[in-house]
Every structure is written in structure tokens, then in C-alpha cells.
Design a binder for these strands. Structure first.
Lengths: 230, 230
DNA sequence: TCAAAAGTGTTCGATATACACCCATGC
DNA sequence: GCATGGGTGTATATCGAACACTTTTGA
């Protein structure tokens, strides 16, 4: 019989985006050694529950947030002395939310959940700052070779929204013309025909939406989403 | 107190390369439900042992193989009913070996370890075939944007060795001239000055070695190793 | 008519691709 | 001298980078 005293947890690094700022979701712990400290949402996995389901459950319970993108990031577990009672190994997940799910639902016991601008993330418990850093790097990187930016925007968006998203996440200027040309050349955007204006002046812009079916179809044909900047 | 009956294991997908063929290391299980079945090397982690150390230990114990590259791949654990006694969650590691470590050391109890050509990997226990597939994809992919090919070659190698490695792993033809031009342009190879001839005829070729220091230095300067083929 | 945001093309340089012949060696 | 593998250069096409003015709207 295996003698092993280790517990498995999952944690989520959830990114939101609004108005040029990237946010990360954190919760304030109620009990234990780290009571009142901020940590990433997450918790121990149940015996009969797939990992990803565990993440979704914890997110729901602790924050009321539903994510639009979720993928495994990395498993952390070398901090052997993290807890006195047993070692904890934590599978970290990388997640994105839509603006419409950006708000914290008030009807859960989520009063301890909060969005922090990525620049202002406080010192978190456990190895969570390390996780945030890694996830942030993944976000920046992935943005350039997978169309995950759309998961951070409303379903219908202006080209300028997409452009600003790229600018602020990658922290660099982008040539509007080249960017538009490139993205449109992929043929994965759908013109909705609608136009709206942002703010109270300026020319109204056209709304686009991401055509996931088209994208999946292109993938089969060896299509590679990729965008680089000077 | 958390009630959780899950055990943590690590498994390694170890790739070796020789003569145009990619090999994967597997071991034959001695006990348990899967006695005599082939599985990936690995096993349960000890309470006080970092994950990566666990992988190295298990590899050493089961196969006597020392790897030259090791990175976490993915954590598998959704097969809730894999074992009747408890659920097992396994952290899979991706590894590469040098030709000089390709041989299985006879002095361990490694008589059950074996290299399988990637094309001939048998049905493995647990989710191990899935792991191999994922690792294989990672290998192919990573070869194009990180200089990991050198970890599969001898320290000193002919250009043709490197070229054949790329050909066989990526399963496509490569233009020798363009390949050489590209790789040399990175400036991460060192000319040893030595020449050797391969086989019993033909012009002798120059031996190169990978200059890791140079590469690390270039990385700081925003260098990007990247190689693509038509 | 001015301020604010949206839309749009062209030129230039860099890099990827395609492609074929000569060289050194052992037999 | 021939078979085997090693080494090399050029022309073209493609793609990324740089760059500025016009349009629509509300105030």
C-alpha cells in the first residue's frame, strides 16, 4: 500500500479585460493560516471530480464567475512545507472571462472576491504570485498565435477594441492599418453590419464578431493564426 | 480536515533518437492489475520530494536512464476509476536523452525497460498512450522554436545529423542549403574544427557543437530561435 | 468648424523559397 | 572513375514594416 500524505488542489488564474486594463481575480481567505490574505480562487479536488470540473465548481462557489476559456497551465507542488498537516500539490488553470461575466455575482458568498488590475496584484498566499506571473506570460504569448483575445471581448466588438486589447496586453504600440489588414486577412471575423459609436463623439465604427466555426474549419486546412509586431 | 483519497504519481515520456528513428522509453510492470503490461516509467511521489526529483528518481530506478532535458508536460487525472483503491493523478513529464544515455544500463533492475520506435509503441496501460501522443506533438512543435534538437544528438555532430533529425521528427523533406543557412545564421553553433566521415565512403564532414552560453546570451537580447519549412 | 474616432493603399526592405553543381573521400 | 555524402550561391516571391490623409459624427 502506498504511504503518501499529499492533497490535491486546483487554482485558477482568471483574466478579465476592460478599457485597456487587464484584471486578475482573487479571493480573500476566511479561515486557516492565511485568513484575510488574498489568494487565487481554488480549492481541494473531490475524489470523483475531473480536475477541470473542480476548477469550475470552485470558481462558481467562491466568485460566481463563469469563464469562457479554460486550460491547464502547470502543476505546482514543490513547496513541500506549505501546510503543516500535509503537502499540497496544486494544478493551476489559466482562464479568461467575457466582459459580461466580469462582474461578480452578488448572490453568492463572493463578497471576498475582487478583481485586481494586473499591475496592482497584492502579495498572494502560497505560490500564487508565481502562478499569476506564469499565466500572464502565457496570455501575452498566446495572444500572438491563438485567437484568444476574443474571449476577453464582448461577442460583438469594434476593431478598435481588439486593437486596444492587443496594445494593452502586449504593452506596445501597434500600427492600426497593418493590424486590421492582418486580422481581416485571416477571414475569421464576421461583419455584423451594425455600427455603433464609442464615447460621445467620433465616427461610428462597425461591429465584428469572431467566427469560431470558420476558424475551426480553417484549422483543419493547416491554417495558422499568427500575428507579430515590430 | 480534508477528506480526499487521491494519490499523486509522475510519469515520463522519454524520447531518444538514433539513425532517423525516434524512440520512446517504456517499462514492463511487474505487479498489480497491469502486471506484464508496458507502461511509461514513473511512479508515486514521496511526501518530501519535489516532483521533478521524483521523475528523475523513478527513471533512475526503473530504467537507469539519465535525461538531458526535462520539463513538465501536463497533469492527467480524470480517469477517476483507474485504480480501485484510490484515484491517481499523474503529472506527466517530457524528456529527451542523449545518444550516450540511450543505452539501458544493465546494472539496474532495468531488464524490463525497452526503447520502442515511436511508430511501434504498443498499447500502454492507464492514459499513457495519450501522454505519448501529446508529448510527441510537443516534440515536433518545440523543435521549431527551441533548440532542443541538440539534446537528442551527441555533443559533437555533423550538420547532416541535425538535418536528418529535423527531417525524421517533422516527417518532411528539408532543403539542405536553406536549413544550413538558417541554423548558421543564429550563431549558436561552434565549429570544432574536427572532421569525420560517416559510413565508409563520402567526403568527411565538419563537427559542430551547440554553444549553450551563446544561446542564453542571445536570449537576453530578445533573440528568437525559429525555423519553419515549406 | 473643430475635436474625436474610423476607415483606407502604397512603397520598400527583409526574409523565405526554390533550385543544381562541385568537392573530398574510399573502394 | 564511380559511388557516397559534404559543401556552397543566386534569383524570385512573399510578407512584414513604415507611413498620412480622408470620412463621419457630435458638440
Amino acid at each position: 500500500m502506498i504511504n503518501q500524505n499529499i492533497k490535491i488542489a486546483v487554482d485558477a488564474i482568471v483574466f478579465g479585460y476592460h478599457n485597456g486594463i487587464v484584471y486578475v481575480l482573487a479571493v480573500q481567505q476566511k479561515f486557516g493560516k492565511l485568513a484575510n490574505h488574498w489568494v487565487l480562487p481554488g480549492g481541494f479536488i473531490r475524489d470523483d471530480e475531473p480536475l477541470i470540473q473542480g476548477v469550475e465548481r470552485e470558481l462558481q462557489e467562491e466568485t460566481g464567475v463563469t469563464v469562457s476559456y479554460l486550460e491547464q497551465l502547470k502543476t505546482f507542488g514543490d513547496d513541500v512545507a506549505r501546510d503543516e498537516r500535509f503537502r499540497v500539490i496544486s494544478v493551476a488553470y489559466f482562464a479568461l472571462v467575457n466582459p459580461k461575466n466580469f462582474v461578480l455575482k452578488a448572490d453568492t458568498d463572493a463578497k471576498n472576491a475582487k478583481w485586481f488590475a494586473i499591475k496592482d496584484v497584492p502579495k498572494l498566499g502560497y505560490e500564487h504570485n508565481e502562478m499569476v506571473q506564469l499565466a500572464h506570460a502565457r496570455l501575452k504569448n498566446k495572444l500572438t498565435y491563438q485567437p484568444i483575445g476574443f474571449d476577453l471581448l464582448d461577442q460583438e466588438f469594434l476593431f478598435s477594441d481588439l486593437e486596444n486589447l492587443y496594445c494593452s496586453i502586449l504593452e506596445q504600440d501597434i500600427d492600426r492599418r497593418n493590424f486590421r489588414k492582418k486580422i481581416l486577412s485571416f477571414g475569421i471575423l464576421e461583419e455584423t453590419g451594425k455600427v455603433v459609436k464609442k464615447g460621445s463623439s467620433g465616427r461610428p465604427g462597425e461591429l465584428f464578431s469572431f467566427d469560431k466555426e470558420k476558424y475551426d474549419q480553417l484549422l483543419k486546412d493547416n491554417f495558422q493564426f499568427e500575428i507579430k509586431f515590430a
